[in-house]
Design a protein around this nucleic acid. Sequence first.
DNA 1: CAAGTATATTGTAAAAAATACAATAATTCA
DNA 2: TGAATTATTGTATTTTTTACAATATACTTG
Lengths: 231, 231
Amino acid sequence: MDVNLQSHFQAAVSVDNVIFGFDTNGLNVLLIYRGAEPYRDRWALPGDLIDLKTDTPDSAAVKVLRNLTGLEELYIDQIRTFGRLDRHPYGRVFTVAYFALIKTQDYSVEASSWAEQAEWFPIDNLPELPFDHNEIFNYAKELLKMKIRKQPIGFELLPKHFTLTELQRLYEAILEKEFDVRNFRKKILSMDFITDTGLKQHSVMHRPAKLYRYNFRKYAKLMTGGYDFDL
Amino acid sequence: MDVNLQSHFQAAVSVDNVIFGFDTNGLNVLLIYRGAEPYRDRWALPGDLIDLKTDTPDSAAVKVLRNLTGLEELYIDQIRTFGRLDRHPYGRVFTVAYFALIKTQDYSVEASSWAEQAEWFPIDNLPELPFDHNEIFNYAKELLKMKIRKQPIGFELLPKHFTLTELQRLYEAILEKEFDVRNFRKKILSMDFITDTGLKQHSVMHRPAKLYRYNFRKYAKLMTGGYDFDL
DNA sequence: CAAGTATATTGTAAAAAATACAATAATTCA
DNA sequence: TGAATTATTGTATTTTTTACAATATACTTG
C-alpha cells in the first residue's frame, strides 16, 4: 500500500451506547463500571472498539447492547460520530454514538455478561464521565426529546401494558414539561395507535387504571397516510 | 502497543459531503468527477480521507466544502456514519457523511480548486454513484425534507434577497408537494422572521415581486421562546 | 398610449385543533 | 361505611388550518 495511504489507515473506530430506561423515578441511563484501562474504575457509556474484520458500526452497537442486556430486538439508532483529536489516550479513535431504549422491567442485571458492573443512573444525576461521554450523553438527551415528539418511540420504554398516566409521566419526564390530563389523553387517544386491552390495574389502593398497549400496525398505517405525530 | 489493540488501529475514516443548491430548475447536488482511483472517471460525492494528525470529521468536511466552493461560512451538518465492510476497495474505510447548503448564485466554478471537475446535477437525475454514495445521498435527501420543516434553513439556499414565490418554490421542490399561495404566505409571514427589504424585482415583464430577506435575529429570539417552526 | 400578458398580492368563511378548566368514578383500607 | 387516592371524562373558547378567486402592477407590443 501507498505510503500516503498508509498514514490514513491508523485509526480505530468504536461505538458507544446511550441506553435509556424509564421507571417510577423517571428517566435513567445505563452505565458500566470500567474494568480496563483507559479510565479503569470509572462509570462510562457502554461501548467497544469495532472489530474491523467482522463488524459494521450498527452490528457492533447491537452486540454491545445485547451483551449488556441479554435482550433482543431493542430499539437502537445511530446518533452521530465524535472524533476530537485527543478524545482517546491510546490513539486516534473515532466513536459512533448510538441511542437505545429499553423496557427497564425486562432488563435484569443477571442476564448481562457484565452483570455486576452495570447500573442505572437518573439522567439528572450522572457521575463525571470519561472520554467525551458527557457530550455524547447530552446530545442523546436532546435527540430523545426531539424524537419523542415526532415518533411513537415512547412505548419502547414502557411495559407491554401501561396506563395513560404512566405514558403521560414518561412524556413529562422526557420533555421536562407538564401536560393537562384531559388534553393529553384526548390527543393520545385521537392518534389512535394505542389499544385498550380490557385489563385493569389491581391491588392499587385507588381506582384502578385501564391498561393499554401500543398498536404498531395502526401506527404504520397512519404513517403511510402521511400522518404527523406531534406532542 | 498491544497486539490486540493493534488490530483495531487499521481503519481509515473519510468525509463525504452532500451539497445541495437550488435554482429555477429545482434542487441540485454538487458532484465531482473523480481523477484518481478507486472509481476514477466516475461522478461522486466530494469527500476526502481525514488527516489523522490534524483533522476532526467536522474540520475535514469544512475543508472539502471550502476547497470546492471557495466560500466561507456555509451551512454544514453531520448526517451519519456509514461503514459497510466492503464499501471501499482499499481497506476498511468508514465515512462520516455531511450535508451542506449553498446559495448557487454565490458559487462559481472558477473559485474551486477542482474547478472543471465539479458539476451540479438535478436531484432526480443523478448518475450511478460509486461506493455507497447513492445510499448516502438518499439519506441526505430525507434529512433535508425533515429539517426544512423544522428549521429555517431554506434561506441558506436562496440569494440574500428573495421573493415569496421563490421561497414557496423552494419548499415545494424539497417537500415534493404544492402549497396554496395565500396560505403559504400567511404562514411564512406569521412566523415573522423574514423582513421586507423595501426593494422590488425589476426588468421582469409582469408585476414585480417584493424582495425579502431572512432575519436571523428575529428567528433566534423566537427560538428561545420555545417556538416550533413547522410547515 | 391602450390593450395584452404574466405573475404578485390579498381576505374571508368554515373546519379542525389546541387550550383552559373541575367534577365525578372506582377501588382499597381502616 | 366513609376516607383516601388516583382515574376518568366534557365543554366552551381561542387559535390554527384549510379552501377558495378576484384585483394589482409592471412590462411589452401594436
